[in-house]
Design a binder for these strands. Structure first.
Lengths: 236, 236
DNA sequence: CGGCTTGTTGAACGTGATCAACTGGAGTGG
DNA sequence: CCACTCCAGTTGATCACGTTCAACAAGCCG
C-alpha cells in the first residue's frame, strides 16, 4: 500500500494553520475558523515581502519557503537579523504592537505566505487565549536566539562566528549522514557574510581554512558537509 | 501645601505592582491580589541576581535600581545583552518557557527586586489574560532593541556603535538642560566596552575624539554631556 | 594616607577590509 | 549542444584600524 501525500491546493491551504506552533493548542473546529480567515500569497525568490517602515495589516505566516529578515547598517551594508522558515510568523511589529515594521523581509526561495488580517487575529487571540501563550513562547525563543547572535557578533574571533553560524545551519538545515552533517545552505557567500557581519572575501577565506583543517568539505556553492562537528563546537 | 511622597516600606512595597507595564491593565482589587503574592529582596551593587544555567522559580520585577544582563563570549569576554531598570522583569526563561536562564544578571547599583513565584504567576496570567498581551508587547520591544544592537555590532565603524550607545543612554538615562542632554552613565568604561564589543582603551580614545569634536563633554567618569545630539544621530 | 581598582595614553602588531584581477558556473540564445 | 554573458566566488597585495601590551595617572575605599 502506498502512502499518498496530497499536494492539491486545498490541502496545502489547510496546512497553513496546522503545524503552526502558535495554533498548536487549537482543536479541529477552532482550526477551521482560523483557516477561514486566511488568505494565501506566493512570492518568488528575491521578492520583498515586508518593507522596513511600512505598515502591513496582516500577520504573515510562512507556509513554505525561507525568508530573511534584515536591515541596513549606517554604512549601507545589509545586516541579516534572522532566517525564518515554515511555521514562523513575520510582521509582528504591525500586529502585536502598533508599529511599522523595523526590518525588511525577502524571500530566499519561492515562498508561500498565509496572511491573517490584523483585526481577525485580534479576535482570535481574544477568543483563544492559548494563542498568546504560544506567541510568548515563540518570542522568548527569538529573543534568546537574537541574544546569541549578539554574543557572537561581540566576539572578535571570526572563526568562532563562522562556527556559530555553521552549527546553527547544521541544526536547522542539516541532514545527518555517515560522513557528518550535510548542510543545504540557506544563504550564498554574500548572505553568510551579511549574517555574521564580515565581508564576502573573508567568508571565502575562512571556509577554505576550515576545509584545509578537514573540519568541513565545501560542495559547490550550495552545500557544506560538516565532517567534524566537535571541532566546530569547541571553537565556539 | 506640600506634596509628600511616602517612602515607608509599605508604600514602596505597593509600588512593586503599580507602574509595572505588564500589570498596567489591572484594577485596584486585582493589583492587591498581585501584591499579596510578591516577596521583596534587596541586592547590593555588584551582586548577581540570576545565573546563566540556573533555574529560578520566580519572575523578578525590578522595583528600584539597574541590572545588566550579560553572557561570556568564547574568548571569556563579557558581552552585555541589555540593561534593565525599574518596571522591567527578568527571569523570563524560567517562567515563560521552561528553560534555565540563558544570561547572568548583576545589580549595577543597589537594587530592589519583587519576586512572584512561578505557579502564582501562571495563575495570574490565566485569570487576567491582559497580562499576556502586555508581556507580548514588552517582548516584541525587547526583540526590536536586541535587533538594533545586533545591527550596531554588525557595523564595522566603531564611532557609529558608540553613537548608538550614547543615544540610547541619552534617551533612557539623560536629562535635558540648556547645554544639551546630561547622561548619568549606567556603566563604567569597561561596561560600555562590553556593551558594544570593543576594548576599554578604544572607548577611552573614541570618547576623547568625540569631545575634541565638541560633540560631547566628559564630566568625570560618571557623566557625559551630549552637546550636539544631531551630529551624533547622523553618524548612526 | 596608602593601596587598589579604573581609566588614559603611547607604540607595535595583527587581522580583516579594501581594491583589483581573475575564475567558474549558471543561464541564455543561436 | 556549444558559445557567450554576467554575476558570484576566489585569490592576492596593500592598507587601516582596533587590539594588545605596557606604563602611567586618577579616583575611591578603607
Amino acid at each position: 500500500m502506498e502512502i499518498i501525500t496530497c499536494n492539491c491546493s486545498d490541502c496545502e491551504h489547510r496546512s497553513c494553520a496546522r503545524h503552526v506552533p502558535i495554533f498548536s493548542q487549537l482543536n479541529k473546529v477552532q482550526l477551521e475558523r482560523v483557516l477561514s480567515l486566511i488568505k494565501r500569497r506566493k512570492y518568488k525568490k528575491g521578492e520583498i515581502i515586508l518593507f522596513e517602515g511600512n505598515e502591513s495589516k496582516n500577520l504573515m505566516i510562512i507556509n513554505r519557503g525561507k525568508v530573511k529578515a534584515y536591515r541596513y547598517t549606517p554604512e549601507g551594508k545589509e545586516q541579516i537579523l534572522s532566517i525564518y522558515s515554515s511555521g514562523d510568523f513575520i510582521g509582528e511589529m504591525n500586529i502585536l504592537i502598533n508599529q511599522h515594521s523595523t526590518y525588511n523581509a525577502e524571500a530566499l526561495e519561492n515562498t508561500h505566505i498565509c496572511m491573517i488580517y490584523k483585526e481577525d487575529f485580534e479576535k482570535l487571540i481574544h477568543d483563544y487565549p492559548d494563542i498568546s501563550l504560544n506567541i510568548i513562547e515563540e518570542l522568548v525563543k527569538r529573543l534568546e536566539k537574537t541574544q546569541s547572535m549578539l554574543q557572537s557578533l561581540g566576539t572578535k574571533d571570526i572563526e568562532s562566528r563562522i562556527g556559530t553560524m555553521l552549527l546553527d545551519f547544521a541544526r536547522n538545515y542539516g541532514k545527518d549522514n555517515k560522513e557528518g552533517v550535510l548542510i543545504n545552505l540557506p544563504l550564498n557567500r554574500e548572505g553568510m557574510a551579511n549574517y555574521i557581519g564580515v565581508t564576502r572575501e573573508t567568508i571565502s577565506r575562512k571556509l577554505n581554512a576550515l576545509q584545509e583543517e578537514s573540519i568541513i568539505e565545501i560542495i559547490g556553492n550550495k552545500k557544506i558537509l560538516v565532517k567534524n562537528i566537535e571541532a566546530l563546537s569547541q571553537s565556539v
